[in-house]
Simulated scan of single mutants.
Amino acid sequence: MSIATPYANLTPDLVLDAVGACGLWPDGRLLALNSYENRVWQVGIEDGAPVIAKFYRPGRWSDAAIAEEHAFALELAADELPVVAPQAFGGRTLLAHGGYRYALYPRRGGRAPSLESAEQLQWLGRLIARLHVVGSRAPFEHRERIDRATLIERPARAVQASPLLPPHLADAYRAAVRRLDEAVTARMEAIGPLRQLRLHGDCHPGNLLWTDDGPHFVDLDDARTGPAVQDLWMLAHDDAAMDALLEGYTSMRDFDPGELAFIPALRAMRQVHHAGWIAARWADPAFPAAFPFAAEPRWWEQHLADLHELADPLG
């Protein structure tokens, strides 16, 4: 196993053996689920419901950081929030087999929420507020933060070290990132300190599933520390949607409206991080297959233009 191709040894047999090591009896049915950072499988179980086996990318999170993710999920579940939490075996949720760390989860179905529905957005707002009530009780000690170091500086270094960035665009990329970073810094200074709490961290429609009983959270892999607005902005496609989210949110928890001014900075940082994430993971065979456009100079030209466009409203 190498850091570049960490899943080369993660065979179907190893997945089945890992589930079997928990005392379950896989029936041989495996379904690979959509995941790039980790590897996730649905595994059929003899005389029982299938389970979801999540194998963590080696080298990404420390054991302590994964333990905090699991503890947060279990804390939310204990407060009766609809969240898919890891299962414990022998008192442990973080398991190891064949050189891989993994966790098992119950299977929970659902569909994407309708972000055009004010009723569903209000419901989501209430749910996120309840998550933040729990998240505000104690800090993370080992998880990442919503900050420039994590979302601008580190991914920008990954891009500059990658062969994906065309050499003739290297200077222009550095200039674009520098301009955006200065604009984000200026916006942060203008807003002032924001209240920090434990977040879902990646609260987009793909990580919220809707059933007849309402929504539930999945995938706390990016749980981190930051301002409350981080868990709201990716669900709001316009001002009316944000108003609906906040109507639900503020019925359960106070919200500082000053945080809304941080959204353009969050949007800009996410763009830098996305390109850096692709660059950092390019040696993983799943990434060229999923993001072939990143090997084309025109994509990087557009990315630079996007960074300048994102920096404009921040100044």
Rank of each mutant, 00 (worst) to 15 (best):
K54V: 10
W61L: 13
W300I: 12
A280H: 12
A112K: 09
P313A: 03
G23I: 02
E69L: 09
G110D: 05
A286Y: 05
R270H: 13
S2W: 09
A176D: 10
L76C: 14
D27K: 06
S117M: 09
F55D: 02
R174I: 05
E80H: 11
L194K: 00
R145T: 11
L245S: 03
A236F: 10
L24I: 10
A311N: 04
D13K: 03
A103T: 08
P285Q: 05
L14Y: 14
L30P: 09
G28K: 05
P215Q: 06
V133T: 14
A149F: 02
I66A: 00
L74A: 13
H142D: 13
E301H: 07
T5W: 00
T93N: 05
I45Q: 01
I263K: 11
A158F: 13
Q87E: 15
G258D: 07
R130Q: 15
S62K: 00
D202Q: 07
P193V: 14
I278S: 02
A295M: 08
P139D: 00
Q160H: 06
L260V: 14
T5A: 09
A49S: 11
V218I: 15
L33V: 06
L314T: 02
F293T: 14
F262A: 15
Q230M: 14
V133C: 12
I191H: 00
G44E: 01
A112H: 13
G20C: 05
R130C: 08
A73F: 01
H273V: 00
A280T: 04
A71W: 08
A236N: 08
V40G: 11
L24Y: 01
I52K: 00
Y56P: 09
A85Y: 07
L104Y: 04
H70I: 02
G28S: 11
A170Q: 13
E301N: 12
A8N: 03
F291P: 02
V229E: 02
H273G: 06
L199M: 08
F89N: 02
L164W: 08
Q42M: 09
E182Q: 14
D181L: 00
P167C: 01
W300V: 10
P285W: 10
Q230N: 15
N207L: 04
L16I: 03
A85L: 08
R143N: 06
Q160N: 10
F255A: 07
A275I: 05
L209A: 06
R253T: 04
E296H: 13
N34T: 06
H273N: 14
H97K: 10
N38T: 10
A156G: 08
E259M: 13
P215E: 04
G315M: 01
A73T: 04
L76W: 03
D47S: 12
E80V: 02
A49Y: 01
V83Q: 03
D147E: 09
G90T: 12
R179Y: 00
H308F: 10
V159A: 03
W299R: 02
A77E: 15
E182D: 15
A228V: 12
W123L: 14
P264C: 08
P50W: 01
L131E: 10
L151P: 00
A172Y: 02
L304S: 12
G248I: 12
V272S: 11
P163S: 04
H142K: 04
L76Q: 01
P313E: 09
K54I: 14
R157G: 06
G91C: 03
H200N: 04
G315V: 05
